[in-house]
């Protein structure tokens, strides 16, 4: 009798083991790393098509480029190594954090932490990052997420209407049927072109860095 009971428990155990193993392997596989830092870092050696510098002033009222417009939208070509320089403006703690998508997200990559952006007014801190996938990104400060937030647009076409000033400096040839032309291939390496978009009252609305 004892022998029989033991056997039947053993039999049922086989079914339970199957269910347990299914649950275990499913949990394991579904917890696979999907992206590294929200898809923002690629461990491979990325090709670098060029370099550009962006300087931002960190102020709790908003990011600005030397007291210019607040939270400018940054236009960056694909596969460019961007050297960010952040200058402390108000002595408060700030971070420089980016994530994919037009809004703040939880899957982020913090380029500069509060420790790196020391609360000493005028201190410059540096970080570089290469945007290797086209799309809209958000850059923001995790301490002041409501005020210090702006957008990065990677590989977007600087369509001819928005460029009003320095466009003649580069010999860009825009093919009109090309939605996503890679401007980067037409620019010389190590170049810095700034473009500004103004509204009808000649107020600068957006600054683009190309």
């Amino acid at each position: 009798m004892v022998e029989k009971e033991k056997k039947s428990i053993r039999g049922a155990a086989y079914g339970i083991i199957i269910i347990l193993l299914i649950a275990l392997s499913l949990t394991f596989v579904l917890s696979a790393p999907t992206q590294t830092a929200g898809g923002l870092t690629d461990p491979s050696n990325l090709p670098v098509k060029g370099y550009m510098n962006i300087t931002l002033w960190a102020d709790a009222a908003g990011w600005d480029t030397n007291h210019g417009p607040v939270n400018p939208t940054l236009y960056i070509p694909l596969d460019y190594m961007v050297n960010f320089t952040v200058i402390e403006e108000d002595g408060l703690p700030h971070t420089l954090t980016i994530n994919k998508g037009p809004k703040e997200d939880s899957a982020t990559l913090t380029l500069l932490t509060t420790g790196q952006i020391t609360q000493i007014i005028g201190h410059k801190s540096h970080a570089s990052y290469e945007f290797f996938e086209p799309g809209v990104y958000t850059y923001w400060c995790t301490v002041h997420p409501t005020t210090m937030v702006g957008q990065v647009i990677v590989n977007s076409t600087a369509s001819n209407s928005t460029a009003n000033s320095s466009a003649s400096l580069c010999n860009c040839v825009h093919s009109n049927n090309n939605e996503f032309n890679k401007i980067s291939s037409l620019l010389p390496l190590q170049s810095l072109v700034e473009m500004a978009k103004a509204n009808i009252n000649n107020q600068v609305m957006t600054t683009m860095v190309l």
Binding site: G11, A12, Y14, I19
Partner: peptide, 12 residues
């Protein structure tokens, strides 16, 4: 199938 397996293993 799984139910069948468990059920018959629990029987005499």
């Amino acid at each position: 199938f799984l139910a069948n397996l468990i059920k018959s293993l629990l029987e005499e």
